[in-house]
Design a protein around this nucleic acid. Structure first.
Length: 865
DNA sequence: CGGATCGAC
DNA sequence: CTATGTCGATCCG
């Protein structure tokens, strides 16, 4: 493709090459320069199916950008001003809550896989190497990087860039071992450290540093490794730790200059003991110690970042790599200085697409991100622009959240083209088999199965189906997956489906509680039951019988047992279909028929499933599309603990909502309080292991955060508070809270809150009080009520803004459901507890324990001054 | 809920 | 010849 990117114009095309990560080539003498690299890659790429698809994706991104620019054109000055005001309220609030009290460390092993391979094979040292295969490289050493050889590049292209490149196959077992060694060290500094893959980890060393202050020298003394295996390379590797930030050269002899090591804590390094070194008590020293120990133990170097939150720590560790470290002092100004000129692409969570979109708005650095915050709040989703604000303020999570339970499990494989339906089915089955094994290892069962296909043109499709009874065995998963596959084969018929990748995923796992009920109910109750439709919930006999080809595949341990169990739950009328299916499958042309037949089976299952079901215990009609819930109901009936009316199961599943709405104080509290209440409520009724999984410290921390916040936000004092309060008073509870799991509730709540549709979803009898002017609005029309509120609000806003009354109002818009004018949403989620997001990297910082009063009187304008 | 996309390692 | 695998999050319909 052509041209440079025209900033401010829609046709912003960077060309595919730039996306391949060739922006920063530190061309060494033996390396290649950037143009040369791009040229070679382009030659190898041009005309390939892969490239064509890349162009297509590029076009899609360009269209997104175009849409965004069109949206931007429509924004009025007033809207922008309003947005500015709103965002800046948030900025001030965030700024007040800035928490610099934690010390977070990000450890990143340098070129990890490549480094391991070089360590274990000295022949590879001094050579350019990469780890991976001819199709895909996982990483490369620094020598190879000078030729433009990088991670995520196919090996055959790397070879063109660097003909002498040695490609070493992956050896995960080895990397895992080394990783474990490193983790053994890390855990001493933070037992709750968070590994991110094999070669990275976050640590919260705040506590360690406190204790460390009182440690005697001996506890901070470490010895050089003198073991014979390491001896021979001692000069080259063992002592190569360098500390760039100290102005240290990468001298092979470590700590030869004592004075340079006496940094801020001016501690005298004691070398009185032969072959040992003592580290100081500062954060830098502690991290040097970590890196030293890692190198002594593994002969590998690591880079590290030290900062008040995870986002900064991560970016910090990138600063002085390889084999260096960097610290951002826990001071606001230090943070802002670091952020100032940083390209947004360096920020974790900002990938190439987001980079390109922001670039189209003229945003490249973090300060520009900050300057455009108002505009961004109108162009991007709530989650996105708030993330942008966090980034431009240098905020991130100040504690390491525990990984939640896994949400999905999948397996996928790439291969040379497969276009015969028969092969595709058996491959699918094989994937299901692998996946079933993995699921079993963790004892998981899920309700939705997703099939992923990539055709030979690299176009990816996913097709999902969620079933009533959860699946975990090969047969169960395959029963669903083969349907999905069949539909896809049909969709291109009479042409063959030409694929290069297939994957199967299972998600929608049962909570611990659901598992419990599933077991009890399905096995004990339903099995003994006779005529009801549940009997057809379990899929048919092993589909393995469809494939003579696979019949010799090693029978798994309890295969027959499982089969017998399956048969017991199996309905009689499945067998005929099975045989039909078997015959049909081997008829080449009739995959359509095969699918139809197997579909019949599932349709049968579906249609026969009691949508309405009379509980055999309480004789009340129950309807649900969720088997586990029905089972729970039955169990509760059986146990006699069922309290009528509280856990009514209905199709709409609004029972939880009703129950929660009964709580008297509910609507008057703010969201955080609601959440606490609700959490209590949930964990009170629900003994699920998922709630108890949270460590004590974790949950107490959560709790203090919440109550802290609620305390702070009791009285509305400014507009944002008013708006928030407005939401509080009027917002009725989310429509669906179907899961008992606490963290799932979090997610649900988030989704509901973010969706503007749930905002003033008033019930018929509710009286609407305008939260701004406080007058009762006697209207049943939400639209007119919203309009009134908006007018009130705009009056207030404009008074603050320009001291002039009257302002063209914008109704809570439905036509532009997103972005522009989404005032209510913005204010609403101001109230969400921060840091609920999983990904750690993008979450906001948590509220500090002691909410300190607004000390800094900085103005927004002078922010980056 | 399903499907596509993004982003990270 | 030859462009990964696995997971979580988000957005939209």
């Amino acid at each position: 493709m052509d041209d440079m990117n025209k900033v401010g114009n829609s046709s912003c095309n960077d060309g595919v090459l730039l996306r391949m990560g060739l922006n920063d080539n530190k061309a060494g003498m033996q390396g290649l320069d950037k143009d040369k690299i791009n040229k070679i890659i382009m030659e190898a790429t041009k005309g390939s199916r892969f490239y064509e698809n890349e162009l297509k994706k590029d076009q899609q991104v360009n269209q997104r950008i175009e849409k965004m620019m069109q949206l931007k054109e429509k924004i009025t000055t007033q809207q922008l001003l309003k947005a500015q005001l709103q965002v800046d309220k948030l900025v001030i609030e965030l700024e007040q809550n800035r928490n610099l009290s934690s010390t977070i460390v990000h450890i990143d092993m340098d070129a990890f896989y490549a480094a391991v391979e070089m360590r274990d094979n000295p022949e590879l040292k001094e050579k350019p190497i990469a780890v991976g295969s001819m199709s895909m490289l996982s990483t490369s050493n620094y020598h190879a990087r000078r030729f433009g050889v990088r991670a995520a590049m196919p090996g055959f292209i790397a070879k063109k860039l660097c003909p002498h490149l040695t490609i070493v196959p992956l050896n995960f077992e080895k990397y895992g071992k080394v990783s474990k060694e490193v983790r053994e060290i890390l855990t001493e500094y933070d037992p709750n450290f968070m590994p991110m893959g094999l070669d990275e980890a976050y640590l919260n060393i705040t506590e360690h540093l406190e204790e460390r202050l009182n440690w005697p020298e001996d506890k901070r003394r470490f010895f050089f490794n003198t073991e014979s295996s390491a001896e021979k390379d001692k000069d080259d590797i063992n002592m190569s730790v360098k500390f760039n930030e100290d102005g240290y050269s990468s001298s092979p002899v470590l700590f030869e200059d004592n004075t340079a090591l006496m940094d801020d804590h001016s501690e005298q390094r004691d070398q009185s003991v032969e072959n040992s070194v003592v580290f100081g008590t500062s954060a830098e020293e502690a991290v040097k110690e970590i890196r030293f120990r890692i190198e002594q133990k593994t002969q590998l170097t690591a880079s590290a970042g030290i900062a008040p939150n995870t986002m900064l720590a991560k970016m910090c560790s990138d600063r002085n790599k390889p084999n260096g470290q960097c610290r951002i002092a826990p001071e606001r100004q230090a943070v802002l200085d670091f952020i100032k000129d940083l390209p947004i692409r360096k920020v974790p969570g900002i990938g190439k697409v987001t980079e390109k979109m922001l670039k189209a708005l003229g945003i490249v650095t973090c300060s520009e991100l900050y300057q455009q915050r108002a505009l961004l709040s109108l162009l991007f989703s709530e989650a996105s622009w708030r993330n942008f604000v966090d980034i431009s303020l240098g905020l991130g999570s100040t504690h390491l959240e525990k990984d939640g339970e896994r949400k999905s499990m999948s397996t996928e494989r790439t291969f040379s083209e497969i276009n015969k339906a028969e092969d595709q089915y058996s491959l699918c089955q094989e994937l299901c088999r692998d996946l079933a094994q993995d699921l079993q290892k963790e004892g998981l069962k899920g309700k939705t199965v997703t099939l992923k296909l990539k055709n030979v043109n690299f176009e990816v499709k996913t097709r999902a189906s969620t079933v009533l009874s959860s699946v975990s065995t090969e047969e169960e998963i395959f029963a669903v997956a083969k349907d999905l596959l069949g539909t896809e084969i049909d969709s291109v018929a009479p042409h063959p489906l030409r694929i290069r990748l297939m994957g199967v995923r299972v998600s929608g796992f049962l909570s611990e509680e659901e598992k419990k009920y599933q077991q009890k109910s399905i096995t004990s109750f339903l099995k003994s039951g006779k005529e009801n439709g549940f009997l057809r919930l379990q899929p048919g006999k092993s589909d393995q019988e469809y494939f003579t080809k696979n019949s010799e595949a090693s029978p798994r341990g309890s295969f027959f047992d499982k089969k017998r169990a399956a048969r017991q739950l199996n309905s009689e009328n499945l067998s005929p279909n099975e045989t039909v299916g078997k015959q049909l499958l081997h008829d080449r042309k009739s995959s359509a028929n095969f699918v139809e037949e197997t579909k019949k089976v599932t349709d049968l299952q579906n249609s026969n499933l009691c949508k309405i079901f009379t509980c055999p215990v309480c004789f009340e009609e129950q309807s649900s599309n969720n088997l586990e819930e029905l089972n729970r109901h039955i169990d509760e009936c059986l146990n006699g603990t069922f309290v009528k009316g509280t856990v009514e199961i209905s199709e709409n599943d609004n029972s939880r909502e009703n129950m929660l709405n009964l709580l008297p104080h509910f609507k008057n509290e703010n969201v955080d309080e609601c959440q606490k209440t609700k959490t209590d409520q949930l964990s009170g009724t629900d003994q699920s292991a998922s709630t108890s999984d949270n460590s004590a410290s974790n949950s107490t921390e959560k709790f203090t955060q919440i109550s802290d916040k609620t305390h702070r936000e009791k009285q509305p004092s400014n507009l944002s508070d008013i708006a928030r309060n407005m939401c509080m008073k009027q917002r009725l509870f989310p429509k669906r809270i179907s899961q008992d799991k606490e963290d799932h509730f979090e997610k649900t709540k988030h989704a509901e809150v973010t969706s503007s549709s749930c905002f003033f979803e008033a019930q018929e009898d509710s009286v609407l009080v305008c939260p701004v002017c406080n007058s009762e609005q006697k209207t049943t029309s939400l639209v007119s009520f919203n309009r009134h509120v908006d007018v009130c609000l705009n009056k207030g806003l404009i008074q603050e803004l320009t001291k002039k009354p009257d302002f063209p109002t914008k109704v809570y818009n439905t036509e532009n459901s997103n972005r522009v004018g989404g005032f209510s949403r913005g204010q609403q989620s101001t109230n969400l507890p921060q840091g609920t997001k999983r990904s750690g990297l993008t979450t906001s910082q948590s509220v500090s324990k002691k909410a300190k009063p607004c000390n800094s009187k900085h103005t927004i304008e002078t922010f980056f001054k």
